[in-house]
Amino acid sequence: MKANAIVFEALTFILFLVFYRGASHAMGKSRNRAFFLGAVLFSLIIQTLAVALGAMNFYWYAINSYYKTYPLGGYVIWLGVVPLAACLLWYMVTATCQMVSTILMPKAKIWSRSAVAGAIAVGFYALIQPVAVTNHWWTWNLKSFYIIDIPLVALFAVFGSVFLFNVVYELTVLEPKDQKTLKRFEDKTIKRLAFKSNRHAKNLNWRQLEWLFMFRLVLAVVVFAAYIAPVVAIFWAVANRGQIPPGW
C-alpha cells in the first residue's frame, strides 16, 4: 500500500492545529508565534537551498502518474519549491525537542540543552525519513553515504539545524543575552539601523526582541551553511551511493 503525500499533508495539518494551540499555552502566545515564524522561515530557507542544489526533491509525487489517479495528487500548499507540510513538521519536531530538553534538563547549559534537542530531533527524523522516502513524500539525490536509504548528511543537517535554532531561540527569546563575538556586529547593523540604540538584549522590548531573533536566525543560516558544507564534502568523498542521473 502507498501512503500518498496527501495523507502525510492531512496528518500534519490536523496535528499542527492541535499542537499550535498546545504550544501557545506552553510557551506563551507571542513566544510561540515567534518560534513558529522563525521555524517555518528557517526550515524553508534550508530546504529551498537543498532543493535548489539538487540534494532533495519534493516533486516526485506531483509529476508522477499517480497525480492523475488520486484527487489533488501531490501536495496542496507549496511555499515556493517546498511544501508547507514539511516546514510545519520541522516546527513541531523542533518545538517538541525544545520542550523536552528544557523539561528533562532544566539546569543544564543552553548549549548542552540544545545539543540534546538536536539529538532527539535526529530520532524523530530517523523514524520519519524511511517512511517518507519509501512513499516519495520527498526523495534524496545526493552523492553520499546512505543508511537505510537516508543520506547521513540529512541526519547531520537535522541535528545542526535544530541545535542552532534552539541556541538562537534560548539566547534571544528565553534568556536574552548579547554574545561577545556578535555584539559588535549587531551594534553596527540591526541595533543601529533598526533600533537606533545599542541597548543590551535584555533591555529591548518585545517587538525589538522579535526582530533580533529573526536577524540572528539569518546569521544561524550562514553558520549552518558553514557547518554542513564540509560534512557534504566528506560524505561526497566516502560515498556508497552516487547521484541518480538528471531527469527528475
Partner: peptide, 15 residues
C-alpha cells in the same frame, strides 16, 4: 503551561 506541554507531547506521540 503544564497542560500545553502535555497536549504537545501527546500530539507528537500520535504523530
Amino acid at each position: 503551561v503544564r497542560r500545553g506541554v502535555v497536549t504537545c507531547l501527546i500530539v507528537m506521540s500520535l504523530l
